[in-house]
Design a protein around this nucleic acid. Structure first.
Length: 438
RNA sequence: UCCGGGUUGGGGUAGUGGUUAUCCUUCAGCCUUGUGGAGGCUGAGACGCGGGUUCGAUUCUCGCACCCGGACCCA
């Protein structure tokens, strides 16, 4: 026996159904908004990720040298690839570009709840619009995906924030006494606010360049409720903050029009750990807190495509993954039961293979899932098998039945059965069952 | 990389320094050559890997792997 690679998962038929359902739902929602599906390579040059994230990132990549001497890596994310695609086609593409893609990604990370080394993600992005409507549409698609999965408003919430509000506030402190605030470090600290002990948290803010007093005040500002956002503008007296708040309010107003405002909560302490976000950021959380980490997140990253060598292109998107999304669904009780279903089992008894095959063919041509014996099993064993695959109806094509020119139709749920003349099954019926002949 | 808890047939488990390693389930076959979800019988199938201690290790011990949480990180 060979070991399965740590962090990689096998999926058996019973659970595959649920995963299919998950991604089918997610994808059809994206399609409904006009997002177009793309596909991308599983392998890219390692350099692409190093340029974006620094040399350390190599430790978290599955990277190697290929036979042609190229340094390549299994893709840990989609964004650089998409940036390349956008750069390559440039003006040729009509804006906004709305793309989605469901794929596997690989990251050499520590395995934890909701986190594996191989995972699937659906990336949904809009490129080429800096308008708040684009941010709001992203929030709307994301929320609708969850409600389509059967989640209720009290199952999840989107914590919405804005990178420039945080950045601008920090900037205003910076101006205040000409200290040198490390904005990115401060924002990363904010992102950890809930996890850190308060003194430790404040210490980290101080380490990022704020004075102890400023750290306290800054933190207080993060609790500003939505209704008092305007006061933040007055406080900061800073162009960047006022623009950011105006933008955030516009996004929320547009989200309201799109019918997803109820899922969004203002949460200035939601920062996303990433440095490249530039505007709206949001994280989806399980409302009960049973799923302790963010289910997924997203936001605006207007500089990234340009930084990666593409044309300056505003962008906003998000990416739900299978691991955390299924946790959320399970917690909310909407994860489908993991068992097999089969429409028909065509049972053979005696030498009736060609007749049975004809019946199966007829039923399959109507679009049904039909199984028949391929293991040379006896009557009882075939029924046993039909039971194990969750067959709804068993069509018995047996020598005895054929003598009287009939089939026997058996309902597996009740065990009831009846006979029907050969030329009446399936006849004109699309989906004949026991009830049609009882 | 770090911290905590795990690992006994396919799944779930009992147990022991020397046993034919327990039970349930599963799977295959039969009782039953035309009736599954009930019963009976037969069969298949396990001590994660490696080292150490020992006359003897599944049991004690160390290391590793993997699994479940968590920290760091999270593109």
């Amino acid at each position: 026996m060979y070991d399965r690679i740590k962090g990689f998962r096998d999926t058996y038929p019973e659970s595959m159904g649920a995963r299919r359902w998950l991604f089918d739902t997610v994808e059809s929602t994206a399609r409904g908004y006009g997002f177009r599906e793309i596909d991308t390579p599983a392998l890219e040059r390692t350099e692409m990720y190093v340029d974006k994230s620094g040399e350390e990132i190599v430790e978290e990549l599955y990277s190697f040298e290929d036979q042609g001497g190229r340094d390549v890596a299994l893709t840990p994310e989609l964004t650089p690839t998409v940036a390349r695609m956008v750069a390559e086609r440039g003006q040729e593409l009509s804006k906004p570009i709305k793309w989605f893609s469901t794929r596997k990604f690989w990251r050499y990370e520590q395995v934890q709840q909701g986190r594996f080394r191989e995972f699937s993600q659906t990336n949904v992005d809009i490129f080429g619009s800096a308008e708040p409507d684009a941010d709001a549409e992203i929030l709307a698609v994301a929320a609708e995906m969850l409600t389509e999965l059967g989640l209720q408003p009290d199952d999840f919430e989107f914590r919405v924030s804005h990178r420039d509000v945080l950045g601008g506030l920090l900037e205003s402190f910076d101006d205040e006494d000409a200290t040198d605030v490390d904005t990115e470090a401060a924002i990363r600290t904010v992102d950890k606010r809930a996890k850190l002990e308060r003194p430790q948290y404040l210490d980290q803010l101080v380490a990022a360049g704020l004075s102890a007093d400023q750290a306290e005040r800054f933190d207080d500002l993060l609790d500003t409720p939505e209704s008092e956002l305007d006061e933040l503008v007055a406080f900061a007296d800073n162009d960047r903050v006022s623009k950011a708040i105006e933008n955030l309010q516009a996004v929320l107003a547009a989200a309201d029009d799109l019918g997803v405002r109820e899922y969004c909560t203002l949460s200035l302490s939601t920062a996303r750990g990433l440095d490249y976000y530039t505007g709206t950021v949001f994280e989806c959380f399980d409302a009960t807190g049973d799923v302790s980490r963010a289910v997924f997140g997203g936001g605006r990253y207007d500089d990234l495509i340009g930084d990666l060598g593409g044309p300056d292109t505003p962008a906003v998107g998000f990416a739900p993954g299978d691991a955390t999304l299924s946790l959320l669904c399970q917690r909310a009780g909407v994860w489908p039961e993991e068992s097999l279903t089969t429409d028909y089992y065509v049972l053979t008894a005696g030498d009736t293979r060609s007749q049975a095959a004809a019946v199966a063919r007829e039923l399959r041509s109507r679009g049904h899932v039909v199984e028949s014996d391929v293991a040379d099993r006896g009557f009882g064993a075939q029924l046993d098998y039909a039971d194990s695959i969750g067959a709804e109806t068993v069509v018995i094509v047996g020598e005895q039945d054929l003598e009287s020119n009939e089939y026997t139709i058996k309902d597996m749920d009740s065990g009831d059965q009846t006979t029907v003349p050969v030329d009446e099954f399936p006849g004109d019926l699309e989906r004949p069952t026991f009830a049609d002949f009882a």
